[in-house]
């Protein structure tokens, strides 16, 4: 199976006065193409920091991250913007939709940045919103929708460009159990359909069944990696 993300000896040190705080202390991890990988841990374990570094939102103190063989930590702002536009889709805990845009416009946004013509991008966005079950909510603004619906819009937005990697930062953190299951089904289903790799950060046990691998993180180090049956199946299938 092809490795899409390769993390090597990653360290992140914060200075709190005289004291050094290790948010990440030597992480080594390889993520395969098409895998759904869950970074699992309590808050403060460093899992979100790790995710941010994969997206290039934070710079590591030491170590390297290769995404599709691109050294993310060495990219400048302009290159990072291009990199994210090309390879990465984001799903956040707090949805992060633009409040003054409708659902349709929010989903269109990544395509606008890519310079797609209006007709094409609206067609794609409508298709995506229908796929997440919001075909009747196209022209609603975020504040006219429930949390679950907003998260669906955000998923549609992340998937609309068909990026190879989806980064999801506690996507179900603000949702109830029933909605959590719906959202996780949606993410897993879509990723499978388009063969995308999902890196999921969660401290929510409801999300775990959807992951192929669970990486337990505590105090900035990987405690253990739990490989599920389906991960092994996927590995075999790819071989």
């Amino acid at each position: 199976m092809e490795t899409i993300i390769k993390i090597k000896d990653l360290k992140k040190v914060y200075r709190m006065g005289q004291e050094k705080v290790y948010a990440l202390n030597g992480i080594n991890l390889e993520i395969k193409k098409g895998e759904i990988c869950c970074l699992y841990g309590t808050s403060g374990s460093g899992k979100t920091t790790l995710l941010n570094m994969v997206a290039g939102l934070e710079k590591p103190t030491k170590g390297s991250i290769l995404v599709k063989n691109i050294p993310v930590e060495k990219l400048n702002e302009v290159q990072l913007a291009k990199f994210r536009q090309k390879y990465v889709g984001f799903i956040f805990q707090s949805y992060n939709l633009l409040p003054n845009l409708t659902a349709l416009e929010n989903v269109c946004l990544p395509l606008i940045f890519k310079g797609y013509p209006k007709k094409v991008r609206e067609k794609e966005a409508v298709k995506m919103l229908k796929a997440v079950g919001l075909g009747d909510r196209l022209n609603h603004k975020p504040n006219q929708m429930s949390g679950g619906q907003q998260q669906r819009v955000s998923i549609a937005r992340a998937f609309v460009e068909k990026p190879e990697i989806i980064l999801a930062d506690e996507p179900t953190g603000n949702l109830d159990t029933k909605t959590t299951i719906e959202i996780m089904e949606l993410i897993a289903g879509m990723a499978e359909k388009y063969g995308q790799t999902v890196l999921l950060v969660s401290h929510d046990s409801e999300a775990l069944p959807y992951a192929d691998r669970i990486v337990h993180i505590r105090d900035g180090v990987i405690e253990n990696i739990e490989e599920k049956e389906k991960y092994k199946l996927k590995e075999c299938a790819n071989k």
Partner: peptide, 16 residues
Amino acid sequence: TKEIGIMKVIGARIKD
């Protein structure tokens, strides 16, 4: 500010 951050993360170029 938040909006600018979101736009950056979902693929807006610096020049945009």
